[in-house]
Structures are given as C-alpha cells and as structure tokens.
C-alpha cells in the first residue's frame, strides 16, 4: 500500500515550508529523505501523519490520512520522532508497550498478541536485556533503540522515522539498517529522514532529496546519490567511492 503525496503544501505562519509535493513512496522499499537543514524533511513526515494542517492530500493506498480514524491511522503508520524525550522514568518495556496502544481496546490489559509483539520488538532491537530498566538509566543509544522498538511493536504498514540512526554506534547503526530493510522486505513501507548520505546509500532503495520545501530529486538510490545531484543541494563538493553501494562522500564546502 503506497503512500502518496498529492500536491502537499505546509505553511508555518506566513512561511511556506513545503511547496506542492507530488510523490509516491512505495511499500516494500526503503525511502530515504535527504536535504540540508530546514529543507522540510521532518515536516514531510509530519504531513504524512496528519500531524500538521496541509494543503493537498496525503493518501495511504486510496484513503486520505487526514480523515482516517486516528486509531486506525496509528495502526497503519508508525512514527519515530526526532525528539527522543521520554517525560517520565518509565521502564523500557512499558515504553515499548506504548506502541501497542492503538491495537488495544479501551482499558483491556495487553493481550498475548500484544505481549508477543513487544517481546519481538525488544529482541529485534537487542534491548530485551534492558526491558525492566528505567529508561532514564539508559544511554542515548540504548534509549534510541528502545524507542525504535516502540514503533516496531506497533507493526505498522508504514514506518516513518526521523533520524533513527543518530546517537547510535556503528554496530547498532548497521543493526537498525538491517532491521528497517527487513521491515521493507516484508512488504511494508519505510521512509526515514537521514543526514548521513553514506548510510542513505547503504539503507535505501529510493532517495528523495528536498531543498527549500521542494523535491529536487526522487528516484532509485543509484540515480540520485551522485555528485551532480547532491552538490547544488548541499553546496558541498562530493566524491564517490566504488563499492557494492553507491557511496558519495562530502569533501569540502563549495565556495560561495
């Protein structure tokens, strides 16, 4: 079930943050969203979740997300925000269990299915050993994995993640990449905002590049991650490394 942006625009105050975005993000693939600071990447994810008022329409399959029942939408689209704040010192497992909220009927205790999904998510993010620790005692990277487990536990058809690799060490970055790729391989959709262009090349099937609220490039990773595309966007000179994945590396700031 694809996620389609049909002329989606977002304004914050008088400033237009997204201008008429037209794109179809495909299920079964990982789409990385790249762009400089302030390009509108996080706003694009929030628009897809109907967290912001938009012009135009975002559809999941044929259903406009803005008019879906909030719980049905929550079961369909999981969201990992950039902000990793957890406001109370709850146990890691209780944080992961929040991912099951849209599946649970009001006031029912978590079912066996819920418990199984929570355990699976903890295992998938290698956080099972942290399950009964208060979240305030975890390191930044551990907490980030627990919060990813929270989204995985909801088993959404689409997973939208804002900077899921930030604060992870290289080993866990690779684990999370493998996990997100497995989610997509299962036929679900994954869209993630990234800053690391090398990781985008390793993780993504498709890449969308945003600048100033507009799509500059959108297509298969090998077509988009090229110095010719990236240099004008980031105003940085890129070089390429040969390898199994297209690897573009920022080399130096382009003179202004």
């Amino acid at each position: 079930m694809d996620l389609t942006f049909d002329h989606v625009g977002v304004s914050r105050g008088k400033r237009r943050v997204l201008h008429g975005i037209d794109a179809t993000l495909r299920a079964g693939r990982v789409t990385a969203i790249l762009g400089p600071n302030g390009a509108g990447k996080s706003t694009l994810l929030k628009a897809a979740l109907a967290l912001l008022p938009t012009t135009g329409v975002v559809r999941l399959g044929v259903d406009p997300v803005a008019t879906m029942d909030p719980r049905a939408r929550a079961r369909a689209i999981g969201y990992l925000p950039q902000d990793a704040a957890v406001h109370w010192n709850i146990r890691a497992r209780d944080a992961v269990a929040l991912g099951r909220l849209p599946h649970r009927s009001a006031y029912a205790a978590p079912s066996a299915v819920d418990e199984a999904a929570i355990d699976a998510a903890l295992a998938a993010t290698e956080t099972a050993h942290l399950a009964y620790r208060p979240i305030g005692e975890l390191s930044g990277g551990e907490r980030a994995r627990v919060l990813l487990a929270r989204v995985l536990a909801g088993e959404p058809r689409w997973l939208l993640a804002d900077e899921p690799l930030a604060s992870l060490d290289p080993a866990h970055q690779l684990d999370v990449i493998a996990r997100l790729r497995a989610v997509a391989a299962g036929g679900r959709g994954v869209a993630i905002v990234l800053h690391d262009i090398v990781q985008a090349g390793r993780l993504a099937d498709d890449v969308m590049v945003l600048k100033d609220g507009r799509i500059v490039a959108f297509g298969a990773v090998a077509d988009v991650l090229t110095p010719a595309t990236l240099e004008p966007v980031f105003e940085v000179a890129f070089g390429t490394l040969a390898g199994p994945h297209p690897i573009c590396i920022a080399i130096e700031r382009l003179g202004r």
Partner: peptide, 11 residues
Amino acid sequence: TLGEDAARSLG
C-alpha cells in the same frame, strides 16, 4: 510520555 507528536501518532 513520548511527547505530543508521538502521542498523536499513536491515535
């Protein structure tokens, strides 16, 4: 507990 955006995304 996860913030307003996350809570809204949970329905």
